[in-house]
């Protein structure tokens, strides 16, 4: 756990084909809350138990996918320190000014070897979770749909995973919690944590750069996962797989798609990570179990359906 560095995944920006059905999906079905909209037409949303004003940005475009993924760091001093460290590592850093994303302080953006745009920021406008900080209730009334608690992580697909891990571990201070090895013992999957969670970001080796597998949102129990699956059935939401369990992270999960084909996950229950734990290894012949622990075989979509 890094008290002097990256705190948590802070936001992701997804491209959607049409805004209206996308808002129905993320607001009415997942239960996120629209907090703002900017002049470019980007819509900002947060999950109910998040305290910053947004964790998901949606932008209407001609093709779906993820624009960038941002992590919040503890302080401005950390942000400045990272900017220097990333440049010294040999990766260019672009400064995005404060309020370029509405409600967010300035961000630093850089391209990692898998082709993805990653950002760091220190400040974001406060919104609260609706419960206050004095003798609060456990949850607010009036939540909709699946009632996801927070934006939790993304799984990204691209080349050069070994280089990506080197950067996240040695520059950003993440820990490698789990990995997948191919028959030649090359790392083809990597799960990294900057916190007590089993993962805060994950990568799968894939020949094409900058592809997006899923954005994941947290629920609290297996029963809530079932409830989410019921909502998917009620509203004919495209399901990829689940409810089921991942071997990796032990997460209980459903993979499904938003109306533009961006994959979402709702999941609950990983384990607590501490830096004195050894990383877990999954071997290629057990990849089915690693991803889908009950079925023990990969569905073809896992390796091919990306945006």
């Amino acid at each position: 756990m890094s008290y002097n560095g990256v705190m948590r995944p802070g936001h992701t920006c997804l491209r959607v084909l049409e805004m209206e059905p996308s808002l129905t999906h993320y607001v009415e079905r997942l239960g996120m809350i629209k907090t703002s909209e900017d002049e470019q037409g980007r819509v900002y949303l947060k999950a109910w138990d998040e305290h910053d004003c947004f964790s998901l940005v949606l932008r209407e475009a001609d093709e779906p996918g993820m624009e960038f993924l941002g992590f919040k760091v503890h302080s401005m001093a950390d942000l400045d320190r990272f900017e220097v460290a990333i440049r010294e590592y040999g990766i260019d850093v672009e400064r995005m000014p404060a309020e370029e994303l509405k409600g967010c302080g300035h961000r630093i953006r850089f391209l990692i070897p898998s082709g993805h745009s990653i950002e760091l920021y220190a400040e974001k406008q406060h919104a609260g979770n609706g419960l206050g900080y004095l003798n609060p209730d456990p949850w607010p009334e009036g939540l909709k749909g699946m009632q996801v608690n927070r934006f939790d992580h993304c799984l990204l697909y691209g080349p050069s995973i070994v280089d990506v891990v080197d950067f996240f571990v040695n520059v950003l201070g993440f820990a490698l919690t789990e990995r997948v090895l191919d028959p030649e013992a090359n790392m083809t999957g990597a799960f990294l944590s900057c916190s007590n969670k089993a993962h805060d970001i994950a990568f799968i080796q894939y020949p094409e750069a900058n592809k997006f597998h899923h954005a994941s949102f947290l629920l609290n129990s297996w029963e809530e996962i079932l409830h989410a699956a019921d909502i998917m059935g009620m509203h004919n939401i495209s399901i990829d797989i689940g409810p089921t369990r991942h071997g990796i992270t032990r997460g209980r999960t459903i993979y499904f798609f938003d109306p533009s084909g961006n994959r979402n996950e709702v999941f609950c229950g990983d384990y607590t990570w501490y830096p004195d734990r050894d990383p877990i290894t999954w071997t290629a012949e057990e990849l089915g179990k690693a991803i889908f622990y009950h079925d023990r075989k990969l569905n073809e979509n896992f390796l091919t359906v990306v945006t």
């Binding site: 533009s260 073809e300 979509n301 091919t304 990306v306």
Partner: peptide, 12 residues
Amino acid sequence: IPVGCRGGGCGI
């Protein structure tokens, strides 16, 4: 026909 995202995004 192979089935993917069903949302016009993945191209499968």
